[in-house]
Design a protein around this nucleic acid. Sequence first.
DNA 1: TTGTACGCGTTATCAC
DNA 2: GTGATAACGCGTACAA
Lengths: 331, 331
Amino acid sequence: MASLTDVARHAQVSIATVSRVINNSDKVVPETRDLVHKAMAELGFKPNRVARRLRQKGGFRHLLGLIIPDIQNPFFAEMARGVEDVAYAHKFAVMLCNSDEDMKKEEFYIDVLQSESVDGIILPPISERDGVVLKLVESGVPVVTVDRSLAHRSMDKVEVDNRRGAFEAVDHLIKLGHRRIGLIAGRLNVSTSRERRLGYDDAMAAHKLPVASEYIRGGDFKQASGRAMAEELLDLPSPPTALFVLNNLMTVGALEAIHRRKLKIPGDIAVIGFDDLPWAEALDPPLTVVRQPAYEVGQAATELLLKRLEDPKRAETHLKLLPKLVIRNSC
Amino acid sequence: MASLTDVARHAQVSIATVSRVINNSDKVVPETRDLVHKAMAELGFKPNRVARRLRQKGGFRHLLGLIIPDIQNPFFAEMARGVEDVAYAHKFAVMLCNSDEDMKKEEFYIDVLQSESVDGIILPPISERDGVVLKLVESGVPVVTVDRSLAHRSMDKVEVDNRRGAFEAVDHLIKLGHRRIGLIAGRLNVSTSRERRLGYDDAMAAHKLPVASEYIRGGDFKQASGRAMAEELLDLPSPPTALFVLNNLMTVGALEAIHRRKLKIPGDIAVIGFDDLPWAEALDPPLTVVRQPAYEVGQAATELLLKRLEDPKRAETHLKLLPKLVIRNSC
DNA sequence: TTGTACGCGTTATCAC
DNA sequence: GTGATAACGCGTACAA
């Protein structure tokens, strides 16, 4: 791999000049400039990003970090695409890591990203009071939280109006005549889960309906727990007539439980899931969902981060995107 | 951020000693060792991976590159998890990139990974004669191809026995009595697509059935094309009684087309898809698929790459994992 | 066992 | 406009 020195020698100029050409400094006369370009082409020179990051003080390192809990979750996958596309458009690379909802892994990757001197990090904290993330923010690294947010700490963030999304879903179910509405929630120490839960309560209260705790179950955002919780609910002496499931993977699990019992949707049990799915239309019946603009969340977060890098002093931005109730045939 | 020098000063030793402690060289007496550890803890020292990679010639940089066509494709997402888990277990970080089946993007990311001096790269080439990947391999960077492979170039690779998987699926359909079997293929310049197509031909030949080209359509691995191709096939004067779709996303598209026409599965049309889906059980009817061991592919590839780093001279390994026909109720 | 000094490929700060 | 040269943080041959 040819280095700056090689190019300089080959072009009969100093390494400083070559460096200037790379960073298109204007302080270089067109002729030498072309000379250097020619040399670079002939040697197949590629600037070494590692050496560059090591030396560079100001300026961009053109590297972003993204830590998501689960790459296999379509919501996060879509969000990651949003991040990646914006980053790519600005010639930034992104290091994508999987925390697996595990603080140890999250800490490992945060360490890695910091010591890779990324320009900034985008992540959904594992919990509302995620100490690892808090420490990261305090350390001065530009951070944008996405989807979930941190309690008691203000920073750039992009969220979805979870409370409203949940309200609309439950409101819709109630208007359809449902009174016993099962709720399969996620971990309550995560902001999204807590807010969606509030939306459920709001809707029940708006219709002066009591919230029965036996209809509320807490899962862990994964498929297996959705299935288990759905089974618990369906086993109740007076089972719910509708299910509202607070994320996509758990919805899939709930669907499995329902099919296994040969229950008809929506006849025997109505279902609304939080998060849209690329294959929601391919389900029978097509699934009614609260659609989150996942791609846009990723895009917005990246744009926010890029702006923050551009101007570290700029005011904090809190974005709250709107979810949308997409009514199909499962309720 | 504290550096080696800071730690050395704080612990009253030389930077060489600190470096030895970090790399747990045995040539350091326990007392100084503890001294250094204490200093590191007090200063919150984290070794700088960038400087480390720049300096290190032999040895590992503990960074792998992974380029996949589409992170939103569950197959690649699962594979990525396999890669990530093995890497994490060995304390390697992974730079995950999306090529989007686009050679320009692939080239950009290969450049990035190379100039990040990753230890090695795992990727499915965009086509069988992917010049960018070929050049990468020639340059000496350890590469393992996964899923798809490169023509005319031998290297470490992990594949799935696509031909056999396709054979079993079509054989199954034929034994069920189907004669007009529609095939929705992917790009034919991709090894997997070509091999699956061969498996189709094999099965037809084994049963002395003619292959009618009107039943064969070429898509691009994406949902929209699966839907479009399915519609073309269903519009035929004598439409197929069964559909074999050569990847997951296209299968979803085909399902949409079928539902839109209110056709019954498997009564009106039987369906088998290549690639399992996490929600195949949640479909109605549950989808029969050729399941690829995606996670294991990722694992195996990473282990192969790690071994290659360990011993650059070792013989090339070609792994071919077995797919499995998972019969559910769509045929 | 420990310390000194050099170099990895680049950017930045000087001179000229 | 261009060229030396000193960093950046670390690993390591070599000296002590």
